[in-house]
Computed example of a mutant assay.
Amino acid sequence: MVRTIYRPGRRRWALVPAGVVLIALLSSCGGGAAQRGVDNSASFSPPPPPPVFYVDPDSEAAQEVDRWERAGRVADAETLRRISTRPSAKWLVGGDAPVREEVDDYLTQATIAGQTPVLVIHNVPDRDCDRLGSGGAATGQEYQRWIRELAGGIEGRPVIVVLEPGAVPDAVDRCVRNLKERLLLLRDAVAVLKSTGAARVYLDAGHPEWISDTASLATALGQAGVRDADGFALNVANFLRTRDNVRYGHRLSDALGGDVRFVIDTSRNGNGPAAGATVDGAPSWCNPPGRALGEKPTDAPGLDRVDALLWIKYPGESDGACRPGEPERGVWWPEYALALARGAAG
């Protein structure tokens, strides 16, 4: 059991392992171990605290580790634990499944684990601007109903939400058919999610190589409700190095007044981006070879204005069928995951 405590001054949830509480209770119950004749000469090392963010024990990587161990791929299974034992976000992309129940089930498991889950909302109408597929809610009204159902599943439990990857940068690029509706829907989504009283919301702002005009991006983020949110997110599903995202984040935060904070996706940026616009005839952002896991998720990155480093893109899920034999977008690809884990520093 882990007790979850929200500390407003830190803007994050701290986890107090149940063992700490138990030790305190035992020490106050009269008669320490020495008084009872117990030998305490042997050193005792408590287990490491669990990650702050939720680790899904039934993730694709965890299931693959089990399969590989049974098949005798013990070394590969051990390497893949670099993914299966670390927290990643859950993506909510619409569809027929009741989103309220899906969110409730996921947050229930995170609450039992004493950890804070990370959700990614990716269902705005006209999402992706037809890049390698399409999707999203059919209408703005459908999206608003879906967001309210999703928020109902939170039920006052702590959660971090990354809102609509690419939605604001696409608006700045003006590839969105209804620009005004896009920004109003995002602003409404921020308000609905913040009304839960438990969600920390970060509007996606792309990455340093997408929108160079930070003043225009800041204006669009403002219209989308970033000042009512907890900040913005950078590098979602991309490979740019953390230091480059921090510098870009500071420029964007300054354009917003200097006090807006942000989070960074470090799931696959260990080796930085692939060189050039294409790799083997496909876009360099789509399953580029030679990449690696980045820094571990943490809510204490020690970086100015950075609230957290997160694994927002799940390492090992395909970016799309960009080359012959590659899986469709979002499909688990174990060998690519293994390559990312092998390339990681530790």
Rank of each mutant, 00 (worst) to 15 (best):
241 R>K: 14
56 D>I: 04
101 E>G: 02
105 D>M: 03
140 G>R: 06
158 P>C: 09
294 G>M: 04
190 V>T: 07
186 L>C: 07
197 G>D: 05
112 I>K: 10
120 V>Q: 07
272 G>H: 06
57 P>V: 03
230 D>S: 12
318 S>P: 03
221 L>C: 10
241 R>F: 00
58 D>T: 10
52 V>P: 00
245 N>S: 12
262 F>C: 08
334 P>G: 09
216 S>N: 00
58 D>A: 14
190 V>Q: 01
125 P>A: 11
6 Y>C: 08
272 G>T: 12
133 G>V: 08
246 V>K: 04
95 G>H: 11
233 A>N: 04
5 I>A: 14
87 P>A: 14
117 P>N: 09
5 I>T: 14
292 A>V: 11
51 P>D: 11
320 G>P: 04
317 E>S: 09
119 L>N: 10
341 A>N: 03
229 A>F: 09
326 E>A: 06
335 E>C: 03
115 Q>S: 13
24 A>K: 10
32 G>H: 10
135 G>A: 03
163 L>M: 12
151 A>H: 03
34 A>D: 15
134 S>F: 08
45 S>K: 14
63 Q>K: 15
272 G>C: 08
146 W>K: 03
214 T>E: 07
313 K>R: 14
150 L>D: 02
263 V>F: 11
219 T>V: 13
252 L>V: 06
324 P>L: 12
328 E>S: 15
315 P>M: 06
14 A>H: 10
202 Y>L: 09
272 G>L: 12
125 P>T: 10
245 N>P: 02
58 D>V: 04
281 G>D: 06
167 A>W: 03
81 R>P: 01
174 R>C: 03
206 G>I: 05
172 V>T: 00
28 S>K: 09
71 A>I: 02
80 L>G: 02
300 A>P: 01
275 A>K: 15
162 V>L: 14
134 S>N: 13
164 E>D: 12
234 L>E: 08
132 L>Y: 09
186 L>I: 13
341 A>M: 06
243 R>T: 11
80 L>F: 07
54 Y>P: 03
20 V>K: 00
104 D>S: 14
181 E>T: 10
51 P>Y: 11
205 A>R: 01
157 R>T: 06
14 A>Q: 13
69 E>M: 08
253 S>A: 13
63 Q>V: 12
150 L>M: 11
272 G>M: 10
145 R>M: 13
17 P>G: 06
91 W>I: 04
122 H>D: 15
62 A>R: 06
142 E>M: 11
88 S>F: 02
320 G>H: 05
230 D>F: 08
31 G>N: 05
284 S>K: 01
27 S>T: 11
341 A>E: 01
295 E>Q: 15
318 S>C: 08
